[in-house]
Amino acid sequence: MKDVRPVIYAVFCGALLLAPFFLNAYWVDVLNNVGLYAILGLSLNIILGHAGLFHMGHAAFYAMGAYTTAIINTSYQIPVLWLMPLSGLVAGVAALVIARPIIHLRGDYLLIVTIGLVEIVRIALINNVFGITGGSNGIFGISRPELFGFRIRRPEHFFFLIWGFAAITVFLFHRLENSRFGRALNYLREDDVAAEGSGINTAHYKLIAFVVGAVWAGMAGNIFAAKMTIIAPESFNFWESVIMFMIVLLGGRGSIPGVILGAFLIVGLPELFRQFATARMLVFGAIMVAMMIFRTEGILPPRPRRYPAAVADGGGDGP
C-alpha cells in the first residue's frame, strides 16, 4: 500500500496556512489556542510519550516561563520575544533542580509528585512569592511582541507566530525522535532495566528529556504571556496540566501528528460544543471516554520504528 500520509500532512498544512484568510477572528483565535497547546503537548510528549515518565505537572514549567517573561518585561521593558530563551532557561534550570531527586520515582509516585509540584507553584504565585508575582491579581500590562519591527497584535498575527513556532517545534522534535537520544528514550520507556543493562544511563536520559520538555514549555509560556498581556495564577492550575496530559494520551503517546490532533480535539471540541451551553463539558467528557474506548492506544499512535538497511543513520546527535 502506498503511504498517503505525506499527502494528508501537506493538505493539512496548506489548509492551516490559508485558514486565517478565511476564518473570522474568533476561529483564528481558537486555532491559536490549539497551536499553543500543540506546542505544550509536543513538549510534554518528550517526557511522557517518549521517556514514559508520568508527568502531570507540566503547567508548572509553563507558568515559570510565562511569569519570567511577564516580570522582566513589565519591570525592565525588554521586548517580549527577546525573553523567550530566558523563559526557557528559567524553566529548564528549575526542571533540572526539581527533577534530580524525584526522577527515580516510579509511575504513579512520580505522577503525584508532579501534581504536587504544579500545586506548589500555583500556591506560591497566589501568595506573591518574593513579592514579584502580583499574587492572585497576576501581572498585567505585558507588552505586545514585535518581530522585525512589526507589532503582533491581532489574532491573525499571532496565528503566524504561534504556528510558526509550532512548525519549528515539530521539525526539531522530529529530528530528536529519530536521533540516538530519541531511540534511547524509547528503549528505557519500554524496559528501563534492560536499557540500563545495555549501557544506557537511564537517569541521565530521563533528566535530559525532562529538561528539554520544560525548556519548551517555558518558551510556550512566553508566547502565552505575550498573547494574553495579563497572566494570573488561575491560568496555570492543575487542570492545565491535566489538559496537556490528555492531549498527549488522546492523540497517541510518542506521535507528533497524534499530539497535534489531540490538541485540536481537547482544545477545539469544547469550542465546537458551545451550542450545548451549560452541557458542553458534559458532552466533552462523554466524547473523551468514547474516543478512548474506540482507539485504546490513542487516535494516531506512532508507527513502529523501521530501520531501512540502505539508509545509514549518521549516528544522531546524542551524546
Binding site: 496530559f245 490528555m246 494520551l249 458534559l282 466533552f284 467528557g285 473523551m288 471516554v289 478512548m292
Partner: peptide, 10 residues
C-alpha cells in the same frame, strides 16, 4: 487514565 478523566468531567 484518560478515560477516567473523561468520566470525571462527565
Amino acid at each position: 487514565v484518560v478515560s477516567a478523566m473523561g468520566a470525571s468531567i462527565f
